[in-house]
Nucleic acid binder design. Structure first.
Lengths: 255, 255
DNA sequence: CGTTCGGTTGATTGACATCAACAACAGTGG
DNA sequence: CCACTGTTGTTGATGTCAATCAACCGAACG
């Protein structure tokens, strides 16, 4: 099993995963106080219960952490894969909601107070929490770098590369997106249409190939991360249709 | 002293600040292994020495942490005020550089290995590091929310509010920017001109008042954080005109 | 079989990056 | 004192780009 499962489903049992991760630790510690929850796609994990009452760790599946800010826009702050950690930031922070991206997502919830006590009494636990927190910082910084890009194309391209880098272990140029276009839009602070357009644009440029809406093949990673993306949109030929014949001059910006 | 100092200068002595912060701790711990460095405006703090060999904490003054990404653009990932913590993210992370924003900025550098050992042997230290790291996560998330805004005006407005919130203790509507327009641009992923234009725009709308390039007075914080900023650019009437915060119509998009 | 949802495409308008020039100011050296 | 120079901030004009409104399509689902 696992071969013919629905793509929305997490591939393994959460309980088993948890047991495995417990075995890795010297003494069963953090996970001994974990509250395991299993959620289907779209369901919230401990919705807006306590603001900062828990730390969370995705055991299997995937989840997104998002906030809705005044104005109705939603910003996804983090995409969590197995073993990714998320702790609500204490004060003044807007209320995040954690939501499963695929079915059978299992999340370990650590009551913050007890987890803190545990970290206080066990240097191993403290070290683990520290490492997980630093990983979270790294993810945030990478997202920040992606958000800092000027064009939507580069944002989406960076997102694809980052997704590939995080999901597949190695040397597989295929990526399965766990997120809808809408989620990608809320993750990159773009509109859905722009995300869709950027993807087809990248496809027309030959950088990626789409086999199904969520199955992406990275044809040329080098082009994606280089400035080739910046080259003006003409000469792309979006399939038939000359599109914008001679705009003639363009910038050819150099450093 | 302190009244007639140059605004670039940090207001207090770093050594004294460090001593004070040591007194707050139960046992002198983290700061006992600190290497103190004092930098002038624009100088690097341990430039691109080790990628992740140190943790840093600003003692007095201010600093910025930035990366230059291929293409020449520079992204400022964090602005550090006294007691703000910064730890380079271990792997694959781009090389950050830490740079003083004002003269006489003092930064405590903790050798990572020794700091980790210390955290391993002292729960207090571990707890402190954890707290500082979480604070850093909170700062990153807030920046992310700012970057997620659609218009430059809202970005700049949010930046001003955040700056006010972080710098002045309470109830002072004046803000002194520690950053040049260029730094603000690199922080918000905008161009310098757009930052400047957004500021004058906010001034014309009566939301802020500028007395000197870096001295901002927040006239109406409520307007800044509401959607009033989104109202179309007409009806602005550059100067004169009593300014009115609620313009009847805006989108009021619902989920 | 209609409905909903996710995804794509088109047309339009507004906004930002870019290039450019200009103003204010500090320092420097004749 | 005054040109010379560099830095910082502002303003203008223009092309490009993305958000928005709208329509359409296919697939999943009741």
């Amino acid at each position: 099993m696992g071969e013919h499962m629905h793509p929305d489903d997490a591939s393994r049992s959460g309980a088993r995963e948890l047991r495995e991760s417990q075995q890795q630790q010297s003494t069963a510690t953090l996970d001994s106080i974990a509250v395991l929850v299993r959620r289907s796609r779209g369901e919230e994990i401990h919705g807006s219960v306590g603001p900062d009452d828990y730390w969370y760790r995705v055991v299997s599946g995937a989840a997104k952490c998002s906030v809705v800010l005044p104005g109705g826009r939603r910003q996804i702050l983090d995409l969590l894969l197995p073993n990714d950690f998320f702790g609500f930031t204490p004060p003044g922070g807007h209320y995040c909601t954690l939501e499963a991206l695929v079915n059978n997502t299992v999340v370990a919830c650590y009551p913050r107070r007890r987890a803190e006590e545990l970290a206080h009494s066990s240097p191993q636990v403290a070290c683990e929490v520290r490492k997980l927190a630093f990983d979270g910082v790294a993810r945030l910084q990478e997202l920040l770098l992606i958000m800092g890009h000027t064009t939507a194309r580069k944002k989406v391209a960076s997102f694809l590369l980052k997704t590939k880098e995080r999901s597949s272990r190695q040397a597989d140029d295929r990526v399965v997106l766990l997120t809808s276009r809408y989620d990608i839009a809320d993750y990159l602070a773009l509109s859905v249409e722009t995300v869709s357009r950027s993807l087809t644009d990248l496809k027309h440029r030959g950088f990626i190939a789409l086999s199904g809406p969520r199955r992406v093949r990275i044809v040329n990673p080098n082009c994606l991360e280089e400035d080739d993306i910046d080259r003006p949109a003409d000469a792309v030929r979006p399939l038939s249709r000359p599109l914008r014949c001679g705009t003639g001059m363009h910038k050819m910006r150099q450093v």
